[in-house]
Design a protein around this nucleic acid. Structure first.
Lengths: 251, 251
DNA sequence: TTAATATGTGTTATTCTGACGCAATGTAAT
DNA sequence: ATTACATTGCGTCAGAATAACACATATTAA
């Protein structure tokens, strides 16, 4: 990819990039898929550039697919970042040398990049970080333990989480984050983790079932400590309908 | 501006622009500030390009200020648009000739442009469309009577309105759209116009006053038909507080 | 067998919402 | 002047939604 860009500047939209905040849920933790590029000490959000002949939404889906292997996943553009100094000194002389980028080609990287942020909600278990494939280290990291990131990626991540929290009040969330069959307590943990606050079990159950997007299965989760909780799945039709119409009208 | 870009490509971020949806409220109508460029039959959203040494938010504020003369106004980035063909054929050979742009310079305009959408809420009465100043025709147009627009500007406008409607449920709106003193019925009309639906007078009053952002003034509106309504103003401190914390928690 | 933990279901008081009644104020028509 | 009409201000009431909490059940660990 990098090599392609160095050799074929013209194929990519100049000064513009995409960064993806890929959320997963596992072990009651909200995880973020981060990568560490060769020669870099800091982690970063998976991102990429935009072919001039590709819609930006398509480019984002491509990047997501490239990193996770999944397709057709929930992906949402949430904000665009363009502070003048956001990528200043990122590709300095030393870095360019390390990466074997000739200096005259390096100017392409040294312009100010505006980056479009997308966040994705994926099923943790379906994604196996495949470091070998991309020559980068790819890892799921608990969002509470995200280390220092390059550039303004921490700010981008925070903003994504912020948007996700807001969206939680406007639409149902979980379909793409949980496995097909799940329990109400699991769903509640997801909500609690995203919102970073405790919710009342009984009130949560009532509210979430009232939305009408859940199907109670005639099946209990097994191999669990304590009382076996019932399994549920999403009623996809109803789910899509609510996604379209929103949850609370407000006015 | 156009001349500056033609001569100094390098000063501007290539392939990237900003478009502003400027909302105002007057005569019980939600108005949008539109412009018509010389040589164009279609109207368009006021927009501009991004100096490489300017934050995108700053660039948006500059564009807004350039068109309206106002500063420090509510301005929010809401989405970024980047379909491949969105500005295809916009600066075709004929147009370039009309605008006196040499063909080799015209290539700058013919790349795919990604545009960042901002919407602004301004006090209608404070803005006098000044066509003379910009050589373009600038006009307030009722959002229900917006004619055909260039490129995907209609889509951008729709999306802005959509976001505004959603935001209405998350935060108070009106501070920058109404004059300092206003009546509850006026505020209600604003809400009804944005949402495009009727609200119950009495329930609206209860709900809006419960938010705690209004100050009832010891003054009535005069020169009105029928019973004179009371005047209110926003309690700016409380307003800002609610803006920060949001309206409905939901969960 | 008992303690501890987590799930499933129900209750109650309070608040919020939607739908509507009615008196007060001011304009316009007769 | 009197009446009809439109608009505002304030209030009521039933039903829905919400927050806080009680109790029974299932399962494991001591």
């Amino acid at each position: 990819m990098l090599q392609d860009i160095i050799e074929n500047n013209k194929k990519y939209q100049p000064g513009l990039s995409i960064d993806c905040v890929i959320f997963g849920f596992h072990d009651n933790q909200l995880k973020v898929l981060l990568i560490k590029v060769k020669h870099s000490k800091k982690w970063s959000l998976p991102g990429g550039f935009i072919p001039v002949d590709q819609d930006i939404d398509t480019a984002a889906a491509t990047i997501l697919n490239h990193r996770t292997g999944v397709e057709g996943i929930f992906l949402r553009q949430f904000a665009t970042f363009g502070k003048t100094k956001r990528n200043e000194n990122h590709f300095d002389k030393e870095t360019l040398e390390k990466l074997n980028i000739p200096e005259e080609k390096g100017t392409w990287f040294n312009q100010r990049f505006v980056t479009i942020g997308y966040y994705a909600l994926v099923d943790f278990l379906q994604i196996v970080p495949d470091s070998a494939n991309t020559h980068d280290i790819v890892e799921w990291i608990d969002h509470k333990e995200v280390p220092e990131l390059i550039l303004d990626h921490k700010e981008i991540l925070e903003k994504a989480l912020d948007c996700l929290r807001t969206e939680l009040n406007l639409m149902p969330v979980g379909y793409t984050l949980l496995p097909e069959k799940f329990t109400i307590p699991e769903l509640q943990k997801l909500y609690e983790t995203i919102l970073d606050k405790k919710l009342d079990r009984r009130n949560f159950l009532r509210k979430i079932t009232n939305i009408g997007i859940l199907k109670k299965l005639d099946e209990k989760k097994n191999n669990v400590a304590h009382k076996a909780p019932n399994l549920y799945s999403f009623d996809k039709d109803k789910y899509e309908e609510v996604l379209k119409n929103g949850l609370n009208q407000g006015w």
